[in-house]
């Protein structure tokens, strides 16, 4: 027990800093790419719409494990040599951006049609309508679906454990190997860490939602 607790703390800290690294970078890239895809999907330009739709259908229906294999095993055969954690970031961003796109698109659909009609009637272009009228209002409605996507992403970072990244879930097998009598405490400690991350994400989301709430 004397040895276990400090070692557990150290490995939890190591593991969850890697989990947060994966979560942070993937969330950033996925949000950028996902927003672009959402704009493509509602645009009046058919090829862009088709591209957005295909991207979403392909990456939303492929298991994340298969995407991980394509990145971790496939990219090196093309001469791409980057650390394992960046392969994980690439994979998680590619996958998650499809879900971000759909969350944002559903938010755009909640904006009252009258808003877009009014902006068109004063002569605004598609870009102006979307950028100045619709997206700012949609940003309120997208918070709940986006929160679900980010929570799912936080949990999906665990899959990197099976592909050479020692993040929080990867620490479980090490802990069980080195401290066999403490199987259950190790599991619940790691599970607790994820529950904390999920709680923080939902906390930030509801704070944002309160802040952005307006009387309509």
């Amino acid at each position: 027990m004397d040895e276990y607790l400090p070692e557990l703390m150290r490995r939890l800290l190591d593991g969850f800093s890697m989990t947060l690294f994966l979560l942070g970078w993937s969330a950033l890239f996925a949000t950028i790419v996902g927003t672009m895809l959402a704009i493509f999907r509602v645009s009046p330009v058919p090829p862009l719409r088709a591209f957005g739709t295909s991207y979403v259908n392909i990456f939303r229906n492929t298991p994340l494990v298969v995407l991980f294999i394509l990145a971790v095993e496939g990219l090196p055969t093309l001469g791409v040599a980057i650390p394992f954690e960046w392969f994980a970031v690439v994979t998680l961003s590619t996958y998650t951006s499809a879900f971000i796109c759909e969350a944002i698109r559903s938010g755009i659909n909640t904006v009252d049609p009258g808003q877009a009609e009014a902006s068109r009637s004063v002569g605004m272009t598609f870009g102006q309508t979307l950028g100045q009228i619709v997206l700012p209002q949609a940003s309120r409605a997208v918070i709940p679906p986006l929160t679900s996507v980010y929570i799912a992403l936080a949990k999906n970072t665990a899959i990197a454990a099976a592909f050479g990244v020692v993040e929080a879930t990867g620490q479980l097998s090490n802990l069980i190997r080195d401290f066999a009598p403490f199987i259950y405490p190790s599991f619940f400690a790691i599970a607790g860490g994820y529950i904390l991350i999920v709680a923080v994400i939902s906390g930030i989301a509801s704070a944002l939602e309160r802040k952005l709430a307006v009387v309509r």
Binding site: K155, N156, T157, A158, I159, A161, A162, A168, T169, L172, S173, F187, I190, A191, Y194, I195, V198
Partner: peptide, 11 residues
């Protein structure tokens, strides 16, 4: 619902 599925599978 809050715990990653892979953590469950590993455990």
């Amino acid at each position: 619902r809050a715990v990653p599925l892979l953590l469950l599978i590993f455990f």
